[in-house]
Structure formats: structure tokens, C-alpha cells
Simulated assay, not measured.
Amino acid sequence: MSKVLVIAEHLGGKLNSSTARAVSAAAAVKGEAIDVLVLADSVDAIAAEAAKIDGVSRVLTVAGPENAHPLAAVLAPQIAKVATGYSHVFVPSTTFGKDVAPRVAALLGVAQVSDVMSVEGAHTFKRPIYAGNAIITVEANPAHAVVATIRSASWPAAATGASNAPVEALAPDIALPAHTRFVELKQGASDRPDLQSASKVVSGGRGVGSKENFDIIFKFADKIGAAVGASRAAVDAGYVPSDLQVGQTGKIIAPELYIAIGISGAIQHLTGIKDAGTIVAINKDSEAPIFEVADFGLVGDLFKLIPDIENAID
């Protein structure tokens, strides 16, 4: 019978919503148990959050100063040790998960399944390939554990609040590598919603024209309480930092509302928003590919249209 181990992602003592999405994927396996593993220096608050996610059987914790920062080289051996007896190990397909999961798979001697967007059976999954232009069905060997990253944008977050799973502390007996050490974390501070979890996102592209002009995107996003994103072209042009990039080589998101401003709609970008609820495009080129996927489109000068929209909101 299947038993799924979900690796919790957290930052600053708070659980990331991607963990609840990975639990939804674990529930689709229809196994006998779903356990969440929390590795941190201080685990209590994070474990308490994880215990409230519906469907979670147990929360397992490994506490220690070596887990104060999410270093894949340090976490992976511990995860592999705890994973003994589990049929599946699920990790969110975020920067954290893409860093940790390959090491866990290598330590367990299995091939990783990446970006799972659908569970067809206990060992059969669907995932996107070719920049999302095709969906492939992957069948894992049932004789071995499945290590998979879960495409967060394709799964709803499991409900929280109704459950209160037991918490169990573990102390795996394993020698940890000493060749990797934490130096520092540089993290941009913002009062805006987080790009990967926001329900509304406003993104700007090359059509915005300059770094200075991008202020119109920030102001519009602030007016409607949205996160800010950007196309790769805007990032490459230096309009905004790379952590705002949406697309195949950036962040994969699934907001309820996505507004693309001055974005032509390259395949790489569309891959990052394919699971968005409603897509609105604003572009002066009526032939731009973004209009093929948009639910609503406005053709015209963004520097005239956005103020008009803001006035309508006011």
C-alpha cells in the first residue's frame, strides 16, 4: 500500500503554501497515509501549521542547527534516511524542491519525476514537456520509491483548519556532509503579495519600454492589490530583477487574475501562466500571440489604457 512523504517548504518559521499543494497531489495517490516532514532548527510553529492541513496523517520533525537553512546537501541525506518504507516522496516544484529532490532521488537510486501536474495512478503521472506544448504520461517503476516534484500551479492547496495531526520528533542517525555551508541570504523586501501565491498578478513586458516606465506597472498593481511579474524580455532588458520573471525559466504561477501588459506572449512566458484563471492582455499589436490565450484583450497604447482603467476603478 502507498505511503507518501511530503517534504515541507518553509521560510522564516512559516509554512509555504506549496506544501499544502503537494499534499493535494499526495491525496490523489490514494495511499494509506500522508506524512509531512519538517526539517528546521526550530520546528514547533511550522509543524503546528502542517498538522492542520486536511489529509495529513502525521507530521514528522527533524530539529537541529544544521537545518537552520535549506541547504540541499544537508537536507537530502536526512530525507533519504526518513524516506525508508515510503512508496513516494513528494516535494514542491519550487526553487527549494528543484534543489533538494534530485539529491534525494540520487541517494535512493531512482529517477526523479519532475513537475507532476496530474496523478493518473499510484505510479503513473502526467507532466509538461516542450515548454508546456505537450503533456507526457510517465510510468514509474513500482518496485522502487517515487521521488517527484509537484507542479504547484496545477494543484489547489489542501484545506486547513479541520485537522490536527499528531507530531512526532525524529533523530535520524546519519553523518551529514561538511563541505557545504550557509553564507548569507539576500532577500528582497516588499509589501506586495508574493508572486507565486498571489491571487492577482500584473506583469509587464518589453513593451513597457524602460526601467523608469515600469513604475506604471507597480502603481497599477498596488492599486488593485496584485503582485508584480515580468516577461523574460523585460528582465533581460534590465527593467526589473530576475526574481519577478514569469515563465518556463522563471516562476510558474496560477493566479485567479493575470494581467499581461506590453507582453507579446512568447511560448516561454505562456508556459508560466497556463494554469491562470482569467488572463487579460494589453498590447498595441493586435497580432501578438498573447491574445490567442487571453480571455479579454485591449489593443492600444498601455500608457493611455492603464490610466483609463485606474480612473474607472476610482
Rank of each mutant, 00 (worst) to 15 (best):
K274H: 09
L185G: 01
W155Q: 06
V146R: 00
E139Q: 15
H269T: 07
Q245G: 06
V208F: 09
V293E: 14
Q196H: 06
G121V: 01
A26K: 04
P172C: 02
V38G: 06
T137V: 10
P142I: 04
A230I: 01
S203Q: 06
E212P: 06
F125I: 06
I46W: 00
A198W: 06
G121A: 15
I217M: 09
Y130N: 02
A106D: 02
G250V: 02
G204L: 04
A234G: 11
I309E: 05
A178H: 13
S24G: 07
A148C: 08
A198S: 13
A45G: 01
I216P: 01
G109A: 01
P156V: 00
I279V: 14
S190P: 00
A169K: 10
V62D: 10
L39H: 00
Y258A: 13
A281E: 08
A22E: 10
A237G: 14
I7G: 00
A266F: 02
R192A: 06
V246F: 10
H123D: 11
I253C: 09
A159S: 14
K81W: 00
G229K: 07
D194L: 11
P255W: 10
T124I: 14
Y130C: 04
Q78L: 13
A134M: 08
D44P: 02
S2V: 01
K251T: 10
G161Y: 00
P156H: 12
E287Y: 09
H269N: 07
G277M: 02
T180C: 11
R192Y: 06
G297R: 08
H69L: 13
A145H: 04
F303E: 02
T84R: 13
D295K: 11
I279D: 08
L170G: 13
I259D: 05
G97A: 05
